[in-house]
């Protein structure tokens, strides 16, 4: 008998068995078909924009163009362990993509966050068995959806009122126009400056852009070893940085 047997026996004996019912097959198929249609639409739009950018950069630079493929335009990283497997360790976008995203964020999203004095924005669309979750803190206070899977009963924030709904939509629209798939914005809650977090499917990494006014630009990149792996912060341009860090 190995030393592990006692723990393994306990695991096997105590773990829950199979549920009585699985998911409804018809509803699951319908959701999968909707997701497939959304993905195709996204790739179509992403491919068009990426092609336009490629032409523009090609005309001005005349050199090799390194842009992510169309499939990664709106959803930054695929379902694999790290996404963008050939973009280094840890993986980051090519410089052209970083600059393009930063320009879009600066032009489309940053003005809205500044005008609204936004300090927290989170949008997670609802899914099967889970309702939409929106968290929004701005000049008029802190708000969040009160659905059971978005708020604990003890959370003090009220549901979004009319003005907050409008302000939230303004930020969401700006994000959509930017073409950068941001699902979360934090000011002062996630390191210095304002961070714009990218929606991803990776279990291994998180990626976000940061706008840090007055930050030192002496270093091109900062590499930090953490207990979970390397955290890499890359200077993009001006006061903008891009960070990839291990997903805990």
């Amino acid at each position: 008998m190995s030393d592990d047997d006692d723990v393994v026996t306990r695991l096997r004996a105590g773990a829950p068995g199979y549920p009585e019912y699985g998911p409804d097959a018809g509803l699951t198929l319908a959701a999968a078909r909707r997701a497939l249609r959304r993905g195709r639409a996204r790739r179509t739009v992403g491919g068009g924009v990426a092609a336009a950018v490629a032409v523009l950069v090609g005309l001005t630079a005349g050199g090799a163009i390194q842009l992510p493929d169309a499939g990664t335009f709106a959803v930054p990283f695929g379902p694999g362990a790290g996404g963008l497997p050939d973009q280094g360790d840890p993986p980051i976008y090519p410089p052209e993509r970083l600059r393009h995203d930063v320009e879009s964020l600066q032009r489309q999203v940053l003005p809205a966050t500044t005008d609204l004095a936004l300090t927290s924005y989170l949008y997670e669309p609802g899914g099967w068995g889970r309702s939409t979750c929106r968290v929004f803190t701005w000049s008029q206070g802190a708000f969040r959806d009160r659905a059971a899977d978005c708020a604990n009963p003890s959370d003090p924030e009220p549901a979004l009122d009319g003005a907050s709904e409008a302000a939230f939509d303004r930020v969401s629209d700006a994000i959509e126009r930017s073409g950068v798939d941001v699902y979360r914005i934090e000011k002062g809650g996630w390191g210095p400056g304002t961070s714009f977090h990218l929606r991803d499917n990776s279990w291994k990494w998180n990626w976000y852009y940061s706008y840090i006014p007055g930050s030192s630009q002496d270093a091109r990149e900062v590499r930090t070893d953490t207990s979970l792996g390397v955290r890499l912060q890359v200077h993009v341009s001006g006061d903008w940085w891009f960070t990839v860090e291990p997903d805990d």
Binding site: W128, C133, C150, N152, Y183
Partner: peptide, 27 residues
């Protein structure tokens, strides 16, 4: 390989009310 724990960083820990669980999956 999905991002199993990522939601904990984006949503606060939620106290699941058993009465609020959806009934589509194993009750």
């Amino acid at each position: 390989n999905l991002r199993i724990d990522g939601w904990r960083r984006t949503r606060r820990e939620v106290l699941v009310d058993p009465g609020a669980l959806p009934d589509r999956a194993g009750p």
